[in-house]
Write a protein that binds this DNA or RNA. Structure first.
Lengths: 326, 326
DNA sequence: TTGAAAGCGCTAACAG
DNA sequence: CTGTTAGCGCTTTCAA
């Protein structure tokens, strides 16, 4: 391993000068700078980040906490985070928590042990602080959080409910996401508001988990409890797709006999047939802007908005019936 | 931040003794140990990993290089890696490279700068070495690699081709993955061997990328160039699903008019209707065993197998026709 | 404009 | 069994 010392020796200057040259801090004579650059190139030197972060008490790492990396929504979000963070010179420590509080605690501890510069978390209801380390919540942002990026769940709920309500629903079932996921209730509020205003009745089906594996359970429960359901407002696309496809398997016609709308707009939703109508959340954008916000916090920049809310969008696709002529 | 010094002071011993107690290295008297434990608990102390890794020249980080985190195969693999690595006390630095050589180089550099203990890479054809840092390749393992975990691509190709050949194919199209992905050619060998032996003709369609977004292109090309295709052997599930669903959209009956077999067995393949027959690769297991192998290398344990090949399995599902009675 | 030196928190000789 | 001490590679006073 070549160190700053080797560079200093080869350039014929002191390590302090090399350090100043590398970091553009303090004065460095033109001649010294040139010699240092040559030496660095010659030795193919790059500074040891560990030593840096020991001194600075702050590393170039950012912790990323995700609830379930196998739900395609989160890789998208992670990409947004990664792109921005890399651009700013940070690396991500991956923490895939699978709705497991113990793992979350473990991760927060190792984040602290490694002097992370900040944490981005899509985990609801966790321990969202870590002595002075900046936190930014992504997607799942509880009311009491200070910094976060999420999309407008209330509006999303309204859009979804309106899309269904306008399409001659007879028996509506609303899938409600886990109570502890902040957005779930907001969406439900939006949905109920619209449905009440339009005097539509509906049934609720609570899903205890957003985990990928939970879909089978939800699906069987739906068809068992509500055999006459003809319209589903789902809590996410993975669940919606599971239901849609199970319906096809049972010979139920989509959308004539069962229409369904999802939430998230994961890449598969557009790709499958019939394509899944959904409320599109800007997953990549949430990650990207969350990363921006975190960088601003890390660098103590002025922050215009602590809580960023991104708009959602209705994607009308083949899983919805034609609109009624009003 | 509370340091080992604080603990030493409170326990009335030296930092060396605290260090020995924490690491169970060297002698520590019972009385001292007790006092240290009390002090640690009292202060809620945990050691700074940065300082540790500076001294050891080796951190508790492992770099994970992935080609495309939005392809559901890789999150699965990542989970396997994460589970094993966490269990062994390591953290993952995420490197999602998107088939971009520049990004890969960047990552390798920062891995080195951060004293990673090792690297797990699912990137083909990269710069798979880093001055003395142990590398283990996952899934995409070129011939010249020394350490890796992958599944038996030749066998996978054979299984896929056999499944199709036994089911009365008229016009077979074989999707060939990117040339630079080592497994692609192996699979093709397996496929061709079977098809030749059974005297089946077939067409090749090369796909230049495994990226999620590349599916649309592949799909249109397939139907444009081979309008009479009735059997597809795909290079991965994402492509296979795209084709299958596009066929449905065009009113082509699955599997009567078009049968198709994928590769990977991502979670969606089982969930969709018609479900996708595929060659199941043990993605989680590849990640997990890769992590095990890497740990053994890091700890300089005896290594039985440097190159681990896991079996693949044919999953017969609804996208295949009934077998011919022979 | 530069260099010497202290120190970030921890580990490991080494001497007691 | 325990403490003193010298670093790990880097940044940053501070004095020259």
């Amino acid at each position: 391993m070549t160190t700053i010392k080797d560079v200093a020796r080869l350039a014929g200057v002191s390590v302090a000068t090399v350090s100043r040259a590398m970091n553009n801090s303090g004065y460095v004579g033109a001649e010294s700078r040139r010699k240092i650059e040559v030496a660095i190139a010659e030795l193919n030197f790059y500074p040891n980040e560990v030593a840096r972060s020991l001194y600075q008490k702050k590393s170039k790492f950012v912790g990323l906490l995700l609830p379930d990396i196998s739900n395609p929504f989160f890789p998208l979000l992670a990409k947004g985070v990664e792109d921005k963070m890399n651009q700013m010179g940070y690396q991500l420590i991956l923490g895939n928590v699978q709705e497991n509080m113990e793992k979350e605690k473990e991760y927060l501890k190792t984040f602290a042990q490694n002097n992370v510069a900040g944490v981005l978390s899509a985990i609801n209801g966790g321990i969202n602080k870590l002595g002075g380390i900046p936190f930014v919540m992504l997607d799942r942002v509880a009311d009491e959080e200070e910094y976060g990026v999420h999309s407008n769940d209330f509006q999303g709920g309204q859009l979804a409910a309106t899309a269904i309500a306008e399409r001659n629903p007879h028996e509506i079932v609303v899938l409600v996401g886990p109570r502890n996921v902040p957005g779930s209730l907001e969406r439900l509020r939006g949905i109920e508001e619209v449905l009440h205003a339009r005097k539509r009745t509906y049934q609720l089906l609570e899903t205890s988990s957003f985990q990928f594996d939970a879909t089978k359970e939800t699906t069987s429960e739906l068809f068992a409890r509500f055999p006459k359901v003809d319209s589903v407002i789902a809590s996410n696309d993975v669940h919606a797709l599971a239901i849609l496809q199970e319906a096809l398997r049972r010979g139920i016609k989509i959308p004539e006999e069962l229409q369904i709308i999802g939430y998230d707009d994961i890449p598969f939703s557009k790709m499958l047939f019939p394509s899944l109508a959904t409320i599109s959340q800007p997953a990549y954008e949430i990650g990207y802007q969350g990363a921006e916000l975190l960088c601003d916090r890390i660098e103590d920049n002025y922050i215009k908005e602590k809580m960023i809310q991104l708009p959602v969008k209705l994607e009308v696709r083949e899983s919805l019936r034609k609109k009624e002529i009003e």
